[in-house]
């Protein structure tokens, strides 16, 4: 058997699944089926998936607690890294394809436009998380690893804000993402309160993989 257990077997599948929206995007881009404003489509869809995967990453822990399926944690890093991947694709499309040739405009934009500022900040903050996502870094950072990776809550919120601020009038969809973020934070509250009294035990499970 190549695979240690069923989770190890499921991982390539999950990987392929996470890559599917990207494959779809490339397919549409190469077949001219992105609609009248292809660049906007590329931006919206890559951004949507970055946000969705970011929230999915944050949903892993509550899911474990509610379902008792503790092995779910072993998918978390992959989800987080894919969130970073889609955020990077999103930023690259904006920089290279959309703003291509008008980069002088960009430098001003990052500072001047709150929605671009928060979006860019979210991407920047994802970098240290991606870099410290390896098991070695996890061991090395020990207790600090978890503290650092709490940034994920803030990053997801920045992502939601980024979406909220670019919408012209219909805020229903970004509001839905915000609601999901709030729920994901609320379900953590009682635990966080208890965690303050007892030391965390997550590390042991994380390092098993």
């Amino acid at each position: 058997m190549f695979f240690r257990d069923r989770i190890a077997l499921a991982k390539p599948l999950a990987f392929a699944l996470c890559l599917l929206p990207f494959a779809h995007l490339v397919w549409d881009a190469t077949h001219g089926t992105l609609g009248p404003d292809p660049v906007a489509q590329l931006e919206h869809r890559s951004g949507d998936w970055a946000l969705r995967l970011m929230l999915a990453t944050l949903a892993v822990t509550p899911l474990r607690r509610l379902s008792g399926w503790h092995k779910a944690i072993r998918f978390r890093r992959m989800l987080g890294l894919f969130a970073f991947f889609y955020a990077s694709v999103h930023l690259t499309i904006y920089l290279v394809i959309d703003l291509g040739g008008f980069w002088s405009q960009l430098l001003g934009e990052i500072v001047k436009r709150p929605y671009i500022t928060v979006g860019f900040a979210a991407w920047l903050l994802l970098i240290p998380l991606a870099l410290t996502s390896t098991q070695r870094m996890m061991r090395r950072l020990g207790r600090h690893w978890q503290q650092l990776h709490r940034l994920a809550y803030l990053i997801a919120l920045l992502g939601v804000l980024h979406y909220f601020w670019l919408v012209k009038a219909d805020h229903r969809e970004p509001a839905l993402y915000l609601a999901i973020w709030i729920v994901l934070m609320l379900v953590r509250l009682p635990r966080q309160a208890r965690a303050a009294r007892t030391p965390p035990t997550n590390a042991a499970i994380l390092l098993k993989d």
Binding site: V39, A40, F102, G108, E109, K112, R113, P114, W165, L166
Partner: peptide, 8 residues
């Protein structure tokens, strides 16, 4: 919230 200097 956004620039009007250029357009797509």
């Amino acid at each position: 919230r956004w620039s009007q200097k250029t357009e797509r």
